[in-house]
Structure formats: structure tokens, C-alpha cells
Design a protein around this nucleic acid. Structure first.
Lengths: 258, 258
DNA sequence: CGTGCTATTGACTGGACTCAAAACCAGTGG
DNA sequence: CCACTGGTTTTGAGTCCAGTCAATAGCACG
């Protein structure tokens, strides 16, 4: 049976919450009943601009979006990536203020969910308030890790870490198969994630490829040697706060090895 | 009348919460009644180690502490600084797991507050749950800004931004006078905040001093030209989510100018 | 007046950036 | 079917900001 993008995205969101916060049936149903209209954004378009006054969160239904900051010289730094099931803007429930701009790295569908509806959910269900809070903290833990990468690691390591992280996150939503996941990001965009230039990103990826750690054709990233890649990136799954990450990672590795 | 360090720190914490979240009298009293024992840590000692199993948050009563990550090669990156009144570890209420290590940059007094007591407060008072959540998000906004700094700014700009941020934060707790605040951090530690080496931090600070933007003797930092320093650091107070930052910043500038 | 830490400075190196050209690739339309 | 187009990737050559190594100076403390 066909279900709409809103329903589908809300299920992904509920799943995401439940990986870290157990929800009662009532709470889960309340999440699934959230209102919201789907919007389509083409690649390389902003979903939320800095000057905008947004009164809604953006639930990613499809595609890849990134929060970012823009500097005076035009350079850009992504401060977070969001894949299907991610709710962007829960933080604004607690910190209304200037919106954090959001960019569609590839063609994306987002569901605009009124902030008021989320606030009501948090007010009515203590379990959901906790789940939202926890979700925010999980995102926050990722930002902290990105800071460590940008501040103290070299190019190869930063990219290795990014790939490990995204592999785990795509795996969690069932989008990793046989050690491969689809990552629709240009090298220019990747540069803005890890704090490098696209040229240097290109060279660094090449070395990873030449060392037999990854394969990367078109938008498909295959992780050929998870252990080595994780070692180079000093990737430790703990900060993602998935349940039994180790199990998943192992499965991933075995899948591609077989 | 003399009051203990616990009481004093709890008042600072309550003040901090109230700058962003209005609290009822009951809620404020509940915060002030939190249990906890003071601990003293000398400079350059870890308050929380990575392998440690902590069941408490650390309320900074006095001094300067920093959360950090350590890499395989021994290099370190601070992911947050904490000054008196900051409650370190509220995030762990929602994300129990491996502790984030905490370092005493200078001699510090922290109050160890049992996590269970904080959990009870959040469970019993929806207003406090929101205040804690909001407090977490405020910290998180700072981390995101640090990421932008480390990822996309040059040395001078990173340091200028850090100084602006800390000036605002010290001002909020009443520790900025006549454009001067005390910042007990070595250049080595500053390097680990902004993702540089201590040598380069030294050189960059020198240029700021030579340009007449700051004075820095011992641990006392004087901001001589706030506008210029903020411009170099591309510092925009919004992310700190203080009430009327602009007013404070202006006061600061006027104070030092007179 | 040592001792140890921190700040400062110099000389040199190197990883990442810049500029620029070429190759690749997916559409698109003639 | 193929030339054309615009975006992206790849590669090369040269530069520069920040890192490294190392020595000196300054300062607090005993």
C-alpha cells in the first residue's frame, strides 16, 4: 500500500527517536500524527536562509541536507548533516532566535512541521520531551566530534572519519548494503564539512582509494576496509549513541567481506 | 554573611538558567537545594577522566574547566569551556555513556551534583526540564560556532572570536570590569581550544596586541577595541543567547573607553 | 639562586591552499 | 547520434599559513 512522504518520514523519525528513547504506543502515535506539508528542494538550494523567520522544523523525508554558517569571505562550514528521518530544528524549540540556515546538498524532500505542534507534543508527553531533548544531544555530540576533527586531524583522517560516521548513520536507516552506501555530496560540499578545500579533498580521497580502503564511484561509497578506515579517522562509534553499534559495524564489515 | 561554595555556585547556576528560562520561585528554590560536595582540583589536572564512570554533574564554583577529546598522537582539542555557574554534564542526563573528560585549566572548585538529583528535578518540574534542555542547547550552539572557527577561520580570527566570546560570558557573571577580564589559560591551552599550536597562538596574539586591539598582561585580558576585535573574529553575539547582549556589549565598550 | 613552567622569538619545513588547465560526465537539444 | 553545455572531478605547479624544532627569556616559587 502506498503511503505519503509525510507518513513515511514520520515513521523514520519515530524510529530514530526509538533507537535512543523507548516510546509508549500513545507517544509513537502522537508522533505519527504530526501535521506537516512536504516541500521539494532542488540540489544546491537553501531550504532555510539565514534571514528567514521560520516557525517550523524540517523533517528530512528524502535527500541530504546540511546546516551551515557562512563567513564574510563567502566560505562556508557545515555544522551538521541530515539524512532521512532527521528532524532539523528541534533545538529551536528551546532556543528560538536567528534561524540556522539549511542547505539541500542534493534534491531533497522535507516536511515542514509547525513548531507549535512539536511544542504541544513535548508539553503533553514527558516521554517525548525527553526523546526530543535526547535527540538534540545526540546531534550535539556529533558537532563536538566534528570540532575535534576540524581542530586536530589531518585531511585524510577527517575524511575517513566523515565516511565512517555517514556509513553508520545510513546503516541505521537501512541504507547500507554490502558495505556500500549512497552519499550524494560533491567534493566541494565535503570540503565545507571537514574544513578543507575541494582540491585537497580530492587528493585525500585519492590516497584512501589507492590504499584500497574505499571505492567511490559516482555517489556510491564502498567501504572496503572498515577497520583500517576507522583507525585512520580515529572513529569510535560511541558518540553516535546508537544501541549496539558494534554489532552493526561488524555486520557491515562482514557483509562487504563476503 | 558567609555562604558556602556550594550555595554560591548554585546561585550562579540558577542565575545562568534564568538568563534564558524564567523559573518559578519553587523551581529556583529546588535548584538552590540541590545536594553536592565541593571538590578542589589543581591546575592542569583532569576533573573527569575518560575511563571514569561518573554519576554526577560538575557545577563549576570557581576556576576554569574544559571538556576535551584526546587523540592517538596525544594532541588534544577542547570542545567547551566552563566558567563559574556552568553545569557540566547535563547532557549526560539524556546521553549516559562514556564520560566526556573534563580538565581543570586553572585551579578550580567544582561541586559534584548527583545525576539522580538533577533527574528528579527535571521529572518533578517541567519548567526545570525545559531550563536544563535549553541550557544544553546553549552550550551546543557554542560548540557549533567553535566548529566554524576551527574549520574556516585563520589564526587571528579564531583567537579574536574566542576572546569576544569569553568576554561576553565573563561579563554575564559579573566578572568583566572596564573592558578587562581574567582568563587563566596558557597559550598551550588556548591552542587546544582553537585548533592551533601554542607557538602560532603566541604570534597571533602578538599581532592583535600590536594592532592595539587588546592588552594581555599576566592573565588579564583587556579589550581595547571591541568593534574591531569582533569584526576580525566575525563575532556575532546571537549564538550565546543571552538576553540583550547588545546592551551588555555596548556597556563593555563604553566602560573601557571612558 | 635554582627549578620548572610559560612566553617569546628565530629558522626552517610542510600540509593545505590557490590558481589554472584539462578531463570527465550527464543532460539536452539540434 | 553527436556536438554543446555546465557542473564536477582530477591533476599540476607554485605559494603561504601554520607547524616543527630549538633556543632564549621571563617569571613565580621555594
Amino acid at each position: 500500500m502506498e503511503i505519503g512522504p509525510r507518513r513515511h518520514a514520520l515513521q523514520l523519525f519515530a524510529d530514530r527517536l526509538e533507537t535512543r528513547s523507548p516510546l509508549s504506543d500513545v507517544e509513537r502515535d502522537a508522533v505519527l500524527a504530526l501535521p506537516g506539508h512536504p516541500h521539494r528542494r532542488e540540489a544546491h538550494r537553501d531550504i532555510i536562509r539565514a534571514d528567514q523567520d521560520v516557525q517550523h522544523a524540517c523533517l528530512i523525508a528524502e535527500g541530504l541536507a546540511g546546516r551551515f554558517a557562512q563567513l564574510a569571505d563567502g566560505s562556508r562550514q557545515f555544522t551538521g548533516l541530515h539524512i532521512p528521518g532527521d528532524q532539523v530544528g528541534l533545538d529551536a524549540l528551546m532556543l528560538p532566535g536567528p534561524a540556522v540556515p539549511l542547505h539541500a546538498l542534493t534534491g531533497s524532500t522535507v516536511i515542514a512541521i509547525p513548531r507549535a505542534a512539536l511544542e504541544r507534543l513535548a508539553a503533553d508527553h514527558a516521554g517525548l520531551a525527553a526523546a526530543f531533548w535526547r535527540d538534540c544531544m545526540a546531534d550535539s555530540a556529533i558537532v563536538a566530534r566534528w570540532l575535534v576533527n576540524a581542530g586536530r586531524k589531518n585531511a585524510r583522517s577527517r575524511i575517513a572519519h566523515l565516511l565512517c560516521e555517514m556509513a553508520m548513520r545510513y546503516d541505521r536507516i537501512g541504507r547500507m548494503q554490502y558495505g556500500t552506501f549512497t552519499f550524494h555530496a560533491t567534493q566541494e560540499q565535503i570540503a565545507d564539512m571537514v574544513g578543507l578545500t575541494s582540491v585537497h579533498v580530492n587528493r585525500s580521497i585519492r590516497t584512501l582509494r589507492e590504499d584500497g580502503l574505499i571505492r567511490w564511484s559516482r555517489s556510491d561509497v564502498a567501504i572496503l576496509d572498515w577497520t583500517a578506515l576507522a583507525a585512520i579517522g580515529e572513529f569510535d562509534t560511541g558518540y553516535l549513541h546508537f544501541g549496539s553499534d558494534r554489532g552493526r559495524a561488524d555486520r557491515t564489515v562482514r557483509a562487504q567481506a563476503s
